[in-house]
Each structure stands twice: as C-alpha cells, then as structure tokens.
Design a protein around this nucleic acid. Structure first.
Lengths: 214, 214
DNA sequence: TATCTTTGCTAACACCGTTAGGTTAAATAC
DNA sequence: GTATTTAACCTAACGGTGTTAGCAAAGATA
C-alpha cells in the first residue's frame, strides 16, 4: 500500500517546488515578480494548486521568514563558536550579522520588512528564540556573575540588535549613499561605522552597570 | 484677468485635497487603503484627474516623504535648541527622534520603508541635509577642536542614526514584543533601551578617538 | 465494471495602476 | 452674439494582482 506514500511524496515535491521557484523568482527578478500567478506559471501548474498547499500569499512569505531566521541564527552560532572570549564573540557575531544581511539581501528584506508588500501579519518565528539566546549568552559571559546587580543582559541584547539592524537597513535602503558621497567618503565607510558601533557597545558593557547620568 | 489666477488656485486646491485625502486614508485605514482609485473616490473626481497632478502613485509617496523629513528635521532642531551642552543636545535629539517616530508612525514607516509597497525608487530628499547637519553639529561640538585628529563626526553621525533607527524599527514592527513578554519585561523596556543606547553613544564620543582594539 | 475520491483546471470576482479617446464646458476670437 | 479653440474631465479599457467557485478528468476502491 505504498500508493498513499507516493502521493504524499509527490505532494511534498510540489510544495517544495513552489517554495524553490518562488524564491528563485524573488532572487532573479526582485520582489515585484513574487506573484501567485507567476509562481504557478513557472511550476507549470494552475493557480489553485498553490492554494491547496498554502493558505494564501502571506503563508509563503512566512515560510521564507522562518527559513531566514533559521539561517541567521545558524550563522551567528557559527561565528560565536570561533571564539572563546565573549567580547570577541560579540564582535564576530556583529560582523556575521552584517555579512548575512548583505549576502542574503532578499531574506533580510523579508525578515525586517524593507519595502515588501503584505507583511502586516505579526509573525511568530521559533528560530528567533535561538537568535537571541546566542547573543545574550555572550553578553552575560562578559560581566562576571554578581558583579553588576543592576545589569540587564536582555536590555543590552536589544541595544546590540538595534544598532546592527539600524546600520544594515540604512545602508541597504541606500538612504545614506548620497550622503556618503556628498561628504567625500569612499565606499568603505559603512564597515568603519560597523566597527565603531561594535567597539562602543563592547566598551559600554565592560564599563557597565552605571545608569544614564540623567 | 484674474481668471487664470482663479484657475491656478483651484488647481492647487485639488492638488492639496489629493494629498490631504490620501494621508487621511493612510492614517485612518492603513497603507492598504492607499490607492489611486480610493483617493479619486474620496475627492469625488475621476481617476485621471489625479494623474494630471502627479506623475504616478510613487510621486504622491515622494511628496509625503519630503514632508516627513521636513517634520523630523524641524523636530530635531527644536529639541536641540532647548540645550546648550552638546551631550544634552544629543540626548534630547535622540528622545525627540524616538517620539517623532511613534507620534508619526505613518510618516516614519513611509520614510524608512517598513512594509510599504513601491518604495523601490531611490529618493532624493533635500531636508535630509538639514537632518544630518543638526546632528553632526552637536557631535562636533562635543570634541574640542584638534584634540582628536582621527575623529570623524560623520561616522559618529551614522552610528547615532543607525542606533536610533534600529531601535525604532524593531519596536515598531513588533518583532520584539513577544520577546519582551517572554523575558518577563514590562512595557517600559524600549525606553530603557533608548536611554542605554544614548548613554553608550555619548560616552563613546567623550572617550573618542581610540580605534577598535582589534 | 461501476462508484467514489482526489486532483487539477477554467473562469470568474473584485481589486489594482495606468492611459487612450471622446465629451462637455469654459475662454477666446471674430 | 456667434464660432472656434482650448482646457477640464469622464468613461472605458488594458493588463496585472489575490482569491475562489464549480466542473472535468483521472485515479483508487468496491
């Protein structure tokens, strides 16, 4: 009775081909080519077949979103594994985050909604937990236990992420390209800003615990 | 011969009503209601009338974009004017930036492309110059002239902006809401992160000039 | 072989941005 | 005051989108 198995397998294959083809369309032709009809055309099935695999267009996006966060979490974990000193780990993760964003531009844009239609839905991604755990781990490791009672690693994690995301998204949306040029800077500036931001952050933790003096 | 004047005035009125009505639609019904047809319906004109005032849909968005940056630049300038100490100015501008973003969510989303369709076009906004000048001014003022020869205010400005934008956009897209809750944090955390980030940044400038030790 | 279930299709609905072409009203010229 | 030109405006269409109802054909089961 392997018939039902084969059917299951074939169905899974169609599902995969939908996702693969859709992603291929996005990467090669941009987000404007991400349409149900174009996917259906590419996989040589009719439009309603796609709706038998995914509830709607957003469900496909959600799938990519999940995969994106999984990839990012893995990337950060790998970068962290290369070092033992927590400060080095944070630096490496910061650079890895940056590299991931620009090596996987489409994923990053999808994950953080830079100019993508229909990302209204609040998303629940399990891999995000792994993403923040790996960062918070290094942050906690930087401050000797009990030395800074008021120290909040989760707060520092949010600062860290905010800085990185801001840096990436501003550079990705090209909002600062003309500015860089008008200020006579060459194209290496964003990386310098990255290092500057990482340096400030790590110094801020090393001298941590003090609340804002205002 | 005031006829041509009246016509000019009437044309200007229609143009304004397009912009006002469109913005009203966005604020009350969200970005998904921002459509040429809905605008035309609301102003009680036919669709092509809109195209006689704006080249296309993006041109209307560009108009909002300009206004958004103008508003933001004014807000920052006002915040800066309330203080004389550069560090205080930066802190005030940081808080003003945050407040602007959440008081004018739709503007901020449009300006920085959080989930808005059709913002592919690279934008040239004159008010952005004012925006960065007002920030860079305070940054330069913090470091006594000639004391740090390798100090780059423009680099620091980008760090500052990146941190703020990252913080805002992560909080705005609700990506961290569930995280905050799962870590047992109340709703005041984002503001604490803001203060933490501002504090780190200002300390980083006060002890500036040193390159990253790696 | 006959019945039933699954699978996939065509065709439609209601939107969208954009534009060609024609109609009506206003302004000018005679 | 009438005729002509010009500007303003609308209807209707084109090609695109997400989504779904209803039907035909192929497969599996009895």
């Amino acid at each position: 009775m392997g018939i039902v198995d084969r059917k299951q397998r074939q169905k899974e294959e169609v599902r995969s081909s939908i996702l693969d083809t859709a992603w291929d369309l996005v990467v090669t032709e941009g987000w404007h080519s991400f349409s149900i009809r174009k996917i259906a055309d590419a996989i040589e099935y009719s439009v309603p077949v796609i709706y038998s695999h995914f509830e709607n267009k957003d469900a496909i996006l959600l799938e990519f979103n999940r995969k994106g966060f999984r990839l990012l979490a893995e990337t950060l974990a790998a970068a962290k594994a290369g070092h033992t000193d927590p400060a080095d780990q944070l630096r490496a993760m910061g650079r890895a985050y940056w590299n991931f964003a620009f090596a996987n531009k489409e994923y990053y844009q999808l994950m953080f909604g830079l100019g993508i239609p229909t990302c209204e839905t609040v998303i629940k991604i399990p891999a995000m937990q792994q993403f923040n755990e790996v960062i918070i781990g290094s942050i906690i490791a930087m401050v000797p236990q009990g030395q800074q009672p008021a120290f909040d690693p989760f707060l520092k994690y949010q600062s860290f992420w905010s800085m990185l995301h801001g840096l990436v998204s501003i550079n990705m949306s090209r909002l600062n390209v003309e500015q860089n040029e008008s200020h006579g800077h060459h194209e290496g500036l964003p990386l310098k800003v990255l290092e500057d931001v990482l340096c400030s952050f790590i110094r801020g933790i090393q001298a941590a615990g003090l609340p804002a003096e205002n």
